[in-house]
Write a protein that binds this DNA or RNA. Structure first.
Lengths: 316, 316
DNA sequence: TTGTAATATCGCTTTGCGCTATGAAACTGG
DNA sequence: CCAGTTTCATAGCGCAAAGCGATATTACAA
């Protein structure tokens, strides 16, 4: 025999409020309604839930015990409502974010940290990948959003791309590197130094090739390759090697790590860091929250970078 | 917004069983029924509970979270059903038993212990009182049953009395008391000894008076009075004092305490130990269980006492 | 006893669950 | 890639029960 959970919740309200009328009021129902519900419940279990002939309705032993269980049910139900509410507002849920390694480590991760400090109940699963993997992840539902640098013409038709930041690359070196004291850097100045390269299959590696080609350096010596941003930063600061990194990554890294960008214009791929997602699918509200958050954070970052570059340019 | 607990339980079943069809089967409902329930729930919360376009229906993050809560609700509900079932069979509940002190301590308590070892979830509240208090307790619902010695003509019309045991009293003394070695005891043999009396307001005290009067002893010296059975037993075994006790109490006490009943016929009040309860009120099933249990236990006890007395009579 | 407050009952409408039958969509194995 | 199979959704219909206001009944209090 299955009892109606709703009935048990009503019973709990009556017992807690000390009377049927008050219970009905607390539940937002009419008095006859709850009276009949209790009559039904009593009829089904075939045992009295209330002492007979007592006016401020008092539960029997059985009634009180069932009321305790009803109360438990009520709490679980309320928690469910709350969960839905928070989920609706993007304050709860799980978010699967994939992205290109350097940008995720150098730019996005710290912003996600900030986001999570405001939305404690949003669980974020971060993963790394390049365009193909990320696309696949988005399409098969393994990812909610992807964050990566992309050329506007590169966006697949079934996906939607929201730009966040300019994606221009710079040549980076440790602070205090000999080249930072050199005025009017040319290819000749750079030629002696070894290079740190990202994994050979990454877009950033192709950027590196292209950048060096754009300044006339066809072949280059790779000193270290394949590491994540943390490794690159370590090697960079511990040696005189050079590398190509997005300017935003260098900019943010400088807060804690002694890096500099060489004032040497290099060709870059007209890509922008942005958020890629499936266009028609309805996304969890937390995704919208994160998207909006990253957008404003990146706007602020862009403004700071622009400001900084103007000063550097005036000084340099 | 209030969610339907039933819907959450259904969701839990679907998630646990790994599919809507299996979930429906587990719930004993038809597949279309649970499908529509889920559609309703989804429509109410306005967010998807299942990944779209997946055939073995897979929950979204929100769906999985709600399913966990639904499972909690289901457990509470099942527990409620179980409670009702056990309560129906008299295996659970609270039982308020009142009774006259000597019989409760000397006869009923040990039987209740045995009852509880078989019905672990029946909680018993025992209290003491005489007829008037017990009647009041039964009528105002403070007691479920009362156990006391009563004359058949004494039973109030709105109450019902079930006899358990003969209520005849005997004169009791310690084992090895000088009188136990005396043949053909008369009033003269008894006269020198002091008496232990129950509280002066108790029926047993009036029994004592009446008993002694019936054997011709009009005035008697009271050595000790007012104690419960345990005190009486202690004083009795530690002195040569005499007292009047129900034979059943002496019989059962002998298992652990060196007492004896003097082979002297005394008048007794034609009362019987029995169970008194309100006649029209529907009692908790556990009461019926206890009533039945006490009835058979007392029958066995009566048989043992009869047997024992035959032997004693043959010997004496 | 009488007035008051609490509960039960009545009549009615609406909601939603139960079922069967059937359509649509996704998976599976060649 | 194509049929067959499985899985889920929808439609239509009857019924149980929740909702309400109005009203009768009953316990408590003064």
């Amino acid at each position: 025999m299955k009892l109606d959970s709703e009935h048990l919740e009503i019973l709990a309200a009556i017992v807690e409020q000390g009377g049927l009328t008050e219970g009905a009021e607390a539940l937002g129902k009419s008095q006859p309604s709850v009276s009949r519900s209790m009559a039904l419940l009593e009829a089904r279990i075939g045992l009295p839930l209330f002492e007979p002939g007592r006016r401020p309705l008092r539960p029997t032993e059985l009634g009180a015990s069932l009321a305790r269980l009803g109360s438990r049910i009520h709490r679980a139900n309320k928690e469910a409502s709350l969960l839905v509410q928070r989920y609706r507002q993007g304050l709860a849920g799980r978010l699967r974010v994939g992205g290109s390694p350097i940008f995720m480590d150098g730019v996005v991760a710290s912003m996600i940290a900030e986001f999570q400090s405001r939305h404690a109940d949003v669980q974020i699963d971060q993963s790394y990948g390049y365009l193909n993997q990320l696309e696949a992840g988005l399409r098969n539902g393994g990812l909610d959003v992807a964050i990566l640098p992309l050329h506007p013409g590169q966006v697949p038709p079934d996906l939607e791309f929201t730009p966040l930041l300019g994606g221009n690359n710079v040549i980076a070196c440790r602070a205090g590197h000999p080249l930072t004291r050199t005025r009017g850097i040319t290819l000749n100045h750079i030629a002696p130094y070894a290079w740190i390269a990202p994994p050979a299959d990454s877009p950033l590696y192709r950027d590196l090739q292209r950048s060096l080609k754009s300044i006339g350096q066809e072949d280059f010596r790779v000193n270290f390759s394949g590491g994540t941003l943390a490794s690159i930063q370590s090697v960079l600061t511990g040696s005189d090697a050079l590398t190509v990194l997005p300017y935003s990554v260098v900019f943010l890294s400088r807060r804690t790590i002694p890096l500099e960008a060489l004032p040497l214009k290099i060709d870059h791929a007209e890509r922008q860091l942005g958020i890629l997602r499936v266009s028609d699918r309805q996304l969890p509200p937390a995704v919208r929250q994160l998207t909006g958050f990253l957008l404003t954070e990146c706007q602020r970052l862009q403004a700071r970078m622009d400001h900084d570059q103007q000063i550097t340019r005036r000084r340099g």
